[in-house]
Amino acid sequence: MLNVFQKLFSKLSVENIKIELMRTAYGTEETVLSRLDPRMLIVWSLFFTTVPWFIHNMTILIGLAVLMGVLAYMARVSPLLIVLLIIGVISQFTYLIFVALFLGGTFTALLAVIPLTIKIMIISLSSMAVFTSMDPEKFSDALLSFGVPGKFSFGVSYGYRMLPILIEEYQSIIQSFRLRGKMPAKKGILYWRYIVYFLKISVLAFYPMMLNTAKRTRTTVEALEIRGFSYSEENDLAKKLKLKALKMNKYDYQFVAITSVITICIINIGMFYPL
């Protein structure tokens, strides 16, 4: 007899997950934000991920949160994900409130945590808006232009390329364990025996995985050598060629202008009508 857990796990472990992962990784669609200059977007998001920490005005915080929510929605982050995120952020602090209530005896902690929750929400939403739709290649180009070494941007595209291969290989190895292994006869309380069985496999599978990947890596690094990767790291020619494609255009300026104006409005309103 097959039980719910196993069904769940088999659903989790095979094709479905792989496809979902691939979809998230490769399914970047054209959105309002994805057309913009990645360098500008990174700086923009850095601004909105640092600044909220230093704002203690509730009106401004709520205003910014709404703005970020709208932008995330425009970046085609599904509304469900946004809601889940909000719930997640709130639940993060429930224990804190609960324990503080127990130790301090008042509800002030609850009130104190609300602005913090909103801050984290602003930060998460702004990163979500910017990075879910950003092509990883564009991101790595932007980092390259900020002076982050080529190794990192290589890592991005290598990860982008190897991800499906690695997932498939890991899946085959797991299946190899299962094809020769034996599931525990009893499931145990809360399926703990099954959980232990699967966790053990998922750890042990890294033994073959490590050796196989090491073999792979050797060819890759050798090929990088003959294809001039280390040469490009030593001189700037390649970098200059690559970054030529990055340009700020009309849309970028419009985006900056519009979001700045809205932000300034929010701050002004907040100053006059602080909550």
């Binding site: 290598y158 982008y160 390329r161 890596t217 060819t219 090929a223 294809r227 001039g228 490009s232 390649a238």
Partner: peptide, 19 residues
């Protein structure tokens, strides 16, 4: 393992770009 770029065109321009 020799293919290190995500798309076909990227792969084809990789070497001349590096040089």
């Amino acid at each position: 393992n020799q293919l290190v770029r995500p798309t076909v065109l990227d792969e084809a321009i990789f070497s001349p770009l590096n040089f």
